[in-house]
Design a protein around this nucleic acid. Structure first.
Lengths: 348, 348
DNA sequence: GATCAAATGGGTAACGTTACCCATGCAGGC
DNA sequence: GCCTGCATGGGTAACGTTACCCATTTGATC
């Protein structure tokens, strides 16, 4: 049944034999532990090199650490997640820790399986990006293994949070549109089947900030929200809903770039021109938003910094920190060609 | 130092005690192994349920399987990879296997570390997507653990290959453009620091098919290739190179949608209109290509089928198959608004 | 009713690593 | 010269699971 005539792996015992030292000594060297002379260290390292030894994570996991951190992503379609990963990878480089990813999916059930899978694989820490799970569940995980939650606003004593100040970002967009002279500004938001307290969800925060700023400017009656999804199709559907209103909005603020791309498509399909007939803005400032033919006004949140910080906080927790930390990045508005003052006939 | 007062995990021994059976019996039940009566099976399953037992992958890995397959992706910015993952996840659902991902990065060194990390974590099988590693290295990995390679065209006795017939896809695009009346058709290709035999790399195959079809139509002199990268910036840079030629091309075939998006940006920036002044086509048929305001003519390769097949082949190998399999999907052309006959003044 | 095979259940030794302890040698202080 | 403490090295028992075997019971066959 042994399909592969796999050569037996080099073990710590092989290294010990080759270097003429004890197994314990080798273990100490690879863990950088106390109690080894420089001379022995060099000898062991030479043997490790020569034999091509690499410790087996499974065996390490049974006693100590696996030097693995798990990253749960809802999916891998949003390029913003790639920025997060970049930041994390950079933070982890040269620490000996490896990051593995797992897809959380769109239901709490599948997400739970995914996170459990990470726990079962003895990762030393977990970073969850925009989890669907409720706070109780997050704390349950955090009790078992050091945890950092990204893109949620909760305050928990058991895990760290890293997030963008979504209310500020949304406010920047809406104020920008109002400053341009828009009044009928619509919003496309996201619905998920999360178990979180709504006020902790980034899309709810963005939507609420939109409403708040509208009200602050006396635009209560112009508030129009399409509840779809933060992806291309969702943006497309949402924009179609909003465009069918009469009078139609002069600006659409999509809660995420991906939804904004879909909105642009719907606007284009309706025979309208951006920004002449309608302004469109997004959130995330993905690379595509910067392309001149899209030129989407968007909110920049530094994904790499968020990912890097999440990694740093997680390593601190693995080292033993137990106090909880909250870290937020301040977003900034990137104005591009997709937003402009409303057309003359549309202004009022 | 115990940062987290983690409750001791439920182990197989706890389950055995609770169900009043031996540890071996429980192990048999969770592995679906031979030698358990239905009655005992039920009892054990009830105890597992009640105690919330989940086997620890690290411990399993020391003796048997971890029920984990590793997916190496170069990065997670290409939405085409998300299709692959979707197919894989669906294939793995209900098999008890979990997929974990790892980022291979852009250098062979980092990629090697990533793949080694998977091996060290005792995954039962590995799927590598568009690896940079040379064939010798792939076979080295395949010797240690069942392996499937995606998006490379090699024939190896040690691992399975799943790929798209890139020559056919590229041919479809170029013929389509020629049929429309184009003659000055340029191509944007990718350069990486792969160690593979060039003829096994998908971007080389696409570029060669482009050249071949051009020659077959007597267009040897019109061949123009920009060697950049399969991403937005690469497409942008490549298109700028190509547009600076005199006379400038009337069509650009970018080897990947992401590059095509960048090319569209460059074309737009140059004050040209698509498709009136210039036709643009891509490859991958990503979701963005379908958006009406982009409407990119592209080649559809079924990523979900590729991912699903890779998963199926890997499971077969894990079961013990040793013969090597090659599986290819046949691409098809999706014609959209970004390609049209060349403008009158441009045709000849 | 004796024999044999199949079905069922369990005992035990790994797997590779680390945590915890102990042993030795040597320098320094009284 | 004896004690103490530190530096250095190693021995050993886990960790949780599975593979391999053996023991017992049951059922079938002659």
């Amino acid at each position: 049944m042994a399909a592969h005539n796999r050569r037996r792996r080099v073990t710590i015992a092989d290294v010990a034999g080759h270097a003429q030292v004890s197994v314990t000594a080798v273990s100490k060297v690879i863990r950088n532990a106390y109690g080894v002379s420089p001379a022995m260290k060099d000898r062991v390292k030479a043997s490790i090199e020569e034999l091509g030894y690499r410790p087996q994570a499974a065996a390490r996991g049974m006693r100590g650490r696996t030097f693995t951190v798990g990253l749960m992503l809802p999916h891998i379609r949003n390029p913003f997640f790639a920025d997060i990963l970049d930041g994390l990878m950079e933070q982890l480089a040269d620490t000996g820790y490896q990051a593995i990813m797992i897809q959380g999916g769109v239901t709490r059930k599948v997400e739970k399986q995914a996170v459990d899978a990470l726990v079962d694989r003895q990762v030393d820490g977990i970073i969850m990006v925009a989890p669907l799970a409720g706070r109780a569940r997050l704390e349950e995980v955090a009790q078992e293994v050091p945890t950092v939650v990204l893109a949620r606003h909760e305050r928990s004593a058991l895990y760290d949070s890293v997030f963008d100040e979504d209310d500020i970002g949304a406010e920047l967009v809406v104020r920008h549109l109002i400053d341009l002279g828009h009044r009928r500004i619509a919003h496309i938001t996201h619905q998920d089947n999360s178990n979180a307290r709504p006020a902790d969800l980034l899309h709810v925060i963005r939507a609420e900030a939109y409403e708040r700023v509208m009200r602050e400017h006396g635009l209560d009656d112009e508030i129009a929200i399409a509840k779809t999804y933060y992806h291309e199709q969702g943006g497309y559907d949402g924009a179609r809903q909003l465009l069918s209103r009469s009078p139609r909005p002069t600006a659409i603020f999509a809660g995420a770039d991906q939804a904004a791309f879909g909105a642009l498509a719907a606007v284009h399909e309706a025979g309208l021109s951006v920004p002449r007939d309608l302004s469109v803005a997004g959130y995330d400032n993905t690379q595509l938003a910067a392309l001149p033919n899209i030129a989407l006004t968007s909110v920049n949140q530094d994904g790499a910094v968020m990912g890097g910080t999440a990694g740093r906080l997680l390593l601190e927790r693995i080292q033993g920190r137990t106090s909880a930390v909250r870290f937020s990045v301040t977003p900034s508005l990137v104005i591009r060609g997709s937003t402009a003052p409303p057309g003359r006939g549309e202004a009022q």
